[in-house]
């Protein structure tokens, strides 16, 4: 690939290529790639520390930054129609509802769901009384 020619193309590619193609400049693609690799390094590095419950939050935060970079630049959402963005992002709303409500339910019934060593006397009869 001849980089000089293609970069020049991309600069005014919008007009030359009949309007609807938005070629990403090569420098942007490379910058996003190296940012993603750096963030991968960061997430591996942060896993070497004992951070307790913050660990999960931090690794999810880094993963979400990476996902945002991929969606905006590699998936061209930054140039895309707003409708497509709304459609795609709405899926995450439903995922949040799905996982959020399941967890809420599970954690509020933790005593029932958790594996316990039930003393032999503690009867099977108690089980049906529990709400389902």
């Amino acid at each position: 690939m001849s980089d000089h020619a293609t970069t020049a193309d991309a600069a005014h590619g919008h007009d030359e290529h009949h309007g609807f193609a938005h070629p990403m400049p090569v420098w942007q693609l490379l910058a996003v790639f190296f940012a993603l690799v750096a963030l991968t390094g960061l997430t591996v590095y942060q896993a070497t520390f004992e951070l307790g419950s913050m660990e999960l939050v931090l690794s999810l935060l880094i993963a979400t930054i990476k996902a945002t970079l991929v969606i905006l630049f590699f998936m061209h959402m930054i140039h895309d129609k707003p409708l497509n963005a709304i459609v795609f992002i709405s899926s995450f709303v439903f995922v949040a509802l799905f996982i959020g409500f399941t967890l809420m339910d599970a954690l509020s019934n933790k005593e029932i769901m958790e594996f316990k060593e039930v003393p032999p006397a503690a009867p099977i009869a108690a089980a049906p009384a529990e709400p389902h």
């Binding site: 293609t6 991309a10 590619g13 070629p23 490379l30 996003v32 993603l36 991929v70 590699f74």
Partner: peptide
Amino acid sequence: GAFNTVVLLFSSLTMAWGVRCAQLNQRNG
């Protein structure tokens, strides 16, 4: 796992670059 992550990220880069090549009619690229 980390190695595979970088491999996949690189494949995403080449894929995005491929889309660019298609948009610019660069067949060999």
